[in-house]
Nucleic acid binder design. Structure first.
Lengths: 247, 247
DNA sequence: ATTGACCCTCACGTAACGTGATGCCTTATA
DNA sequence: TATAAGGCATCACGTTACGTGAGGGTCAAT
């Protein structure tokens, strides 16, 4: 019933050496070892391996994966939810790349002009933007989050982001007299949520937390209220409604 | 006008070290070097860099990227089109992963039951017009075996299978101008072979036979060539190479 | 003229395996 | 039951794509 190395390797599409490696570093040690020293992997081992590969797909270093999987607070469902978020995020990046490549093609055909920075929109793969959230959720240290991330973006990307954010704030401000659970508010909030997920990956919890910060952190509040009195509070309420409804 | 290392690095979101590295290995050497030894990158350099990053995003090793970019037959626009295709495929894969993860989550919540009795509800591969040929080619057991397996799958799983097949065809189509014995083609062919073996069991001979059918049977040829002109022939060659090499 | 941000070239470090070399199991077939 | 083929094991060095200082010039602004 248990699987030998090559079987596992073929089932999941990795090399035998990789399994050896994971054993060496203690990331995945077979449940059983035969008399003659053969590695024998259980069904449970396979599930763990699946988890490992999920995270690996998202470019988590193995060290981190090990920490996550062995953490007592590791919650499989939560991990899956987060994984989902990250996949969505990755897809958004792909979409950006596609836009960028389409523009490049058109540019080659001489149809439009593209700035240098624009050519590289979508190419910020310099470091894993998801790790931060993973840390937050699985109780590593809390670190300053968004500033660092944004600092890694190209200048034009930063400007674009700022423009888009301000646009959203403005539209929110325009409807801030409506109830937070109104269709309009919720629709915009949804837009806000998905937009945020183009930067990093936000769970609903994190999103709610962000909303709270808007009202609890003076720096946020005053900046947001520039777009309209009471906007921060309105955003917070809308975001809470949104997060709770989606749960 | 020309850019210094850090400027380039910031524009595209990579590290200075990476640029040094690309210079070292001759992948991207700045058009100009200042009096004092500074690397000065031209606009053209930036375009090349963009190409490099596109390929890198698709996990091409730098060596291969260099080969490709310096190849005299390298057509920039065609390459871009190819990238576009591959990105689209990648996104489709992500979508599949998302479906799969959603299912896993729902399954964990016990919201759906994957009963074994949930069988052929209409769509199955028995509508396959090529079944008779398949029977003739590989004998009845192989066909029955795969039919049975497919019949046991849920609708969603069947849809996934169809998607996977089409995905593979698409990815093959994207690289059909490469030689059939190239690493990329053989890698995909391997994927195709192992994928087929998740349905039934295919000997290398049967696999080769399938490849031949692709070009000899008009109905196959035209269906496959929908994914790209000459794809059937390309598949046949790749599959033959693959089978012979493995023998 | 000095400071601070940027640039250069070594050169060793690292992550995640790849790739043999060498030798002990296991299993299908004669 | 022997024997050969193929799978498994453990070293141990190699590789890719950079990261990370160390030590030292360069440039623009104060």
């Amino acid at each position: 019933m248990p699987f030998k190395v090559k079987e596992v390797a073929e089932i999941v599409g990795i090399s035998v050496r990789t399994l050896h490696h994971y054993d060496d570093i203690g990331l995945l040690m077979p449940d059983e070892i035969s008399e003659s020293g053969y590695r024998l992997y259980s069904d449970e081992n396979l599930e763990t391996l699946q988890q490992i590969l999920f995270f690996r797909e998202l470019d988590f270093p193995l060290k981190r994966i090990k920490e996550i999987l062995t953490s007592p607070s590791f919650d499989r469902e939560e991990a899956l939810q987060l994984h989902r978020q990250m996949l969505l995020n990755k897809r958004n990046k792909l979409d950006q790349l596609l836009v960028s490549i389409d523009k490049t093609i058109q540019h080659m055909k001489g149809e439009i002009m593209m700035s240098n920075e624009e050519k590289f929109d979508g190419f910020d793969f310099s470091h894993n933007p998801y790790e931060q959230e993973a840390r937050d959720r699985w109780g590593d240290q809390a670190v300053d989050q968004s500033k660092e991330k944004i600092g890694n973006l190209s200048k034009v990307q930063q400007q674009n982001m700022k423009d888009e954010m301000e646009d959203l704030y403005n539209r929110m401000a325009a409807i801030r007299h409506l109830p937070p659970n109104s269709k309009e508010a919720q629709s915009l909030t949804h837009e806000w949520f998905t937009w945020l997920n183009t930067i990093g990956s936000y769970s609903l919890e994190a999103f709610k937390g962000l909303g709270e910060m808007y009202v609890n952190d003076e720096r946020f509040t005053s900046n947001i209220d520039k777009f309209g009195d009471g906007l921060a509070a309105f955003l917070n309420e809308s975001m809470t409604v949104y997060a709770n409804k989606r749960k």
